[in-house]
Design a binder for these strands. Structure first.
Length: 701
DNA sequence: GTTAGGG
DNA sequence: CCCTAAC
């Protein structure tokens, strides 16, 4: 998994799990900037988002308040607030479980009650599948702007279920622990609490919402230096996934069903390791719009079957699916309670929903607010809401608490046979894919995007209370398309670092990076979790085991647009979007006359239908000409020869060659077979003309 | 991996 | 050129 990889690198950048908050960006600023970091950040962000989502769902209606950016005058205040929150009936804990519960990737919310804990424990041991099913929380956002199409969108029924819960996330951060027990949990809680109290200066919000992002920055400071993030979680070293438990659900909720979905899918071993080229292809396939996903309401496999039936177009190729092979597909899905989610759905990609004045209601407002929305991008829409803002004149420091990011659902399909490790990896990959492009952070003030990074917050007007209400952050996928100038204005000082890096990365290695391509070995980034399998068996096993069964397809994560649709609705994916990221179209290299001649020559000799031989004979050294290219070129030549010269375009091909093309075409059409016997009696007249047989070999365009 | 065609 | 189906 990616995680591992990161671990390998050390946690420098990667403390992630500790706090699922967006904080990374901030932290990062503090730390060295590296690609990895950026990636990590992305991941964290995702995690935070997911956490947030969960939180939201649980907190449901009431929770609205939770979302937002809090600006707290002082740490104490913040603390108080948090404390208040604690009173709330439920709190959600985040933690990362590695050992026991590993199997599943989930976010869970646990009630504070001891009894609940016991439940939790059990739960943790339960099979991942169950967990997954029950508590699927992953939401996805699609980051790439263009990618939108690629993502499979599924229309899901909104989960109103969560609405019932009011929950508070106490743990703030997920814990990464080797042990999965409740004990840890307890500790974690304590720690968190303690931290929360102690850190008042930092105004760390550890307790409330894990997803919250707190930023503290002096109004005057441009650079990131000041941003503080609560790191208490950091104490815990390893983290792969964090799980969020939702005890409540376990306890007795049918509702859960709504969330989970299963798909069956077949996987091919190939998918993961094949040559990069293949990998690309596969990826592309996945991305292709052709795939449709159906989201059944059903939770179980059974359901999945049905869905299989329902997916008409989905995966033509036999390759992709062998349902039988897959015992089960797990779909995670988390839905957002709020309407907005729907917004995200569409292509919006990361649309950030900007600031809302009213903390609680903010969500509703979002739509409007999102000045910063990246058009076209679909995936990830992040919502950042400002909950409270208070300005602290003393310090002239403004504290930001970004409580939540909203993202569309993320669908992850995994064969039942997939290993836990593969599941993790899949999740990671998905996330990476989504976030891999990097995120840009934007500041929106009063509906306007603040572009000048050099301005101080004060100058920008962020220092004032008044403005705080109208302050918003945007998260945008940094894709090729929107290559944000790293240094440029768009990024707000504090966060800028991260974004810039992300951007950089994305720009630099578009192809490789494309999150999807992670299957490929190279990318040092998060993507390749596989590469770094160190400690865990999981990883290894996952590879081996999963590999067979898990196809590249497995990877297919689908960002599901948040829609309040009925279960079976099918949404097509956009092809275009991802592809761009994944694979770059080869540059066009028109055939030169000499190449055409060589081609004609070769075809005259070999005939059509032996393109490989043609390639070998005449274009062996022209790496950019594949036999498919030659075949295609011949096709076009034939066509060209048949049309009037006026209709021809591009570099004119000597009529003489065209005549030969027609002659050869006619000849070989007749002698259809491919008389390998080139020199035999049958040798066509055509052959006569040719002067030289040398290919284009040396020619390189 | 190739071949043949459609896009 | 890309993408696939068929081999």
């Amino acid at each position: 998994m990616v995680f591992k990889k990161r671990q390998d690198h050390g946690f420098n950048g990667f403390r992630v799990p500790t706090i699922p908050r967006a904080p990374r960006s901030v932290r990062r600023s503090l730390h060295k900037k590296t690609v990895e970091d950026s990636q990590i950040c992305a991941f964290e962000l995702l995690a935070s988002i997911a956490g947030k989502l969960l939180h939201e769902s649980e907190s449901s209606a009431s929770s609205n308040a939770s979302e937002g950016i809090d600006l707290l005058a002082t740490g104490k205040d913040a603390v108080k607030q948090e404390r208040k929150d604690e009173d709330k009936p439920f709190k959600a804990e985040w933690r990362y479980q590695r050992s026991c519960g590993d199997s599943s990737f989930a976010f869970e919310t646990a009630s504070q009650n001891i009894s609940d804990r016991s439940t939790l424990k059990e739960f943790s041991h339960a099979e991942s599948d169950d967990v997954l099913e029950r508590t699927s929380v992953i939401k996805s956002f699609d980051c790439s702007q263009k990618v939108s199409g690629d993502v499979k969108s599924v229309i899901c029924k909104s989960n109103t279920d969560f609405g019932n819960y009011s929950s508070k996330v106490e743990g703030g951060s997920p814990h990464f622990g080797e042990s999965c027990d409740a004990n840890i949990k307890n500790e974690a809680e304590r720690q968190l609490e303690v931290v929360g109290l102690k850190t008042e200066g930092a105004n760390i919000c550890s307790s409330k919402d894990p997803t919250e992002l707190f930023l503290e920055s002096p109004a005057a400071i441009n650079s990131d230096s000041n941003v503080k993030l609560p790191l208490h979680q950091d104490s815990i070293p390893n983290a792969c996934f964090y799980r969020h438990r939702n005890d409540i659900k376990l306890g007795s909720r049918d509702d859960d069903e709504n969330f989970s979905r299963c798909f069956k899918r077949s996987t091919k071993s190939k998918a993961f390791r094949p040559s990069p080229h293949i990998a690309d292809r596969r990826i592309r396939k996945l991305l292709t719009s052709k795939y449709w996903k159906v989201a059944p309401k059903l939770k179980d496999c059974e359901l999945s079957r049905s869905d299989g039936g329902s997916k008409p177009l989905y995966r033509k190729r036999k390759t992709c699916y062998d349902r039988q092979r897959y015992k089960r597909d797990i779909l995670f899905k988390r839905r957002k309670l709020f309407d907005q989610s729907s917004i995200a759905t569409s292509d919006g990609g990361f649309s950030s929903e900007s600031v809302s004045n009213s903390p609680e209601k903010g969500i509703t407002e979002d739509k409007n607010g999102s000045a910063a929305i990246v058009h076209g991008a679909n995936g990830l829409s992040s919502l950042v809401l400002g909950r409270q803002a208070s300005f602290h004149s003393k310090d002239s420091q403004v504290k930001f608490s970004i409580k939540s990011f909203r993202v569309p659902e993320l669908f992850i399909e995994v064969p039942e046979t997939a290993t836990v490790g593969s599941l993790k990896r899949t999740v990671m990959e998905t996330v990476t894919a989504i976030l891999g492009g990097g995120l840009r952070v934007g500041i929106v003030l009063q509906g306007k995007k603040v572009r000048d990074d050099n301005r101080t917050l004060l100058q920008t007007g962020i220092s004032g209370k008044d403005n705080l209400a109208s302050l918003g952050f945007t998260l945008e996928p940094s894709t090729l398309q929107t290559p944000p100038p790293t240094s440029s204005s768009d990024l707000p000082p504090p966060i800028s670092c991260d974004s810039s890096q992300l951007v950089t990365r994305s720009l630099g290695n578009p192809v490789v990076d494309s999150g999807m391509s992670d299957a490929l070995p190279d990318p040092p980034t998060l993507t390749n979790s596989s590469n770094h399998v160190d400690s865990n068996n999981d990883t290894v096993s996952s590879h081996t085991d999963t590999t067979d069964k898990t196809t590249p397809d497995t990877k297919a994560l689908v960002a599901v647009p948040a829609m309040s649709m009925e279960a079976l609705a099918v949404v097509p994916l956009n092809q275009k979007a991802r592809r761009s990221e994944l694979v770059q179209r080869r540059t066009r290299r028109p055939f030169s006359v000499s190449e055409v001649e060589a081609l004609v020559q070769a075809v005259e000799e070999l005939g059509t239908g032996r393109w490989r031989d043609v390639k070998l004979r005449a274009f062996e050294n022209a790496d950019h000409r594949t036999y498919v290219d030659l075949k295609d070129k011949w096709k076009t030549l034939v066509h060209t020869a048949k049309i009037s010269p006026q209709q021809r375009r591009g570099e004119p091909v000597p009529q003489e060659l065209l005549d030969r093309v027609l002659a050869a075409h006619a000849y070989w059409s007749e002698h259809q077979a491919k008389p390998h016997v080139k020199n035999q009696a049958g040798t066509p007249k055509i052959m006569e003309a040719p002067a030289d047989r040398h290919g284009v070999e040396g020619i390189q365009l």
